[in-house]
């Protein structure tokens, strides 16, 4: 299972853009990722242990939030996960 990391997360993962993280479910793969690189936890998870609202996790092209089993969705060897912080903003006009 490969997890692709966006630019802002790479400093916490030895500058890697992709990490091998085994797991039978998305939650297990994410746990493997943060076990390998504990400094990622603070960016991805809030203090209550939930994924931060601005952090999107994609299983292939599917937003994990919209999968029936969400973080407990099963993974296959050919699947990839992508972590993608949101982009938004606007003027104070």
């Amino acid at each position: 299972m490969k997890i692709y990391l966006p630019t802002p997360l790479r400093p916490y993962a030895d500058k890697r853009s992709v990490v091998d993280a085994p797991g039978a479910t998305i939650a297990e793969a994410m746990r493997s990722l943060t076990n390998q690189y504990p400094d990622l936890k603070g960016y991805i998870y809030s203090d209550d242990g939930n994924v931060r609202g601005f952090v999107n996790i994609y299983l292939n092209d599917e937003d994990v939030r919209y999968l029936p089993a969400k973080m407990n969705s099963p993974l296959h060897d050919s699947d990839t996960l992508t972590i993608m912080p949101s982009i938004a903003g606007g003027s104070n006009r």
């Binding site: 802002p8 400093p11 912080p85 903003g89 003027s91 104070n92 006009r93």
Partner: peptide, 19 residues
């Protein structure tokens, strides 16, 4: 920023997460 200067706003900073 339509009809507004290109100065970042508080909303821009609040929603910025790509260090």
């Amino acid at each position: 920023h339509p009809d507004h200067p290109p100065q970042w706003s508080s909303h821009d900073l609040e929603e910025a997460h790509w260090f």
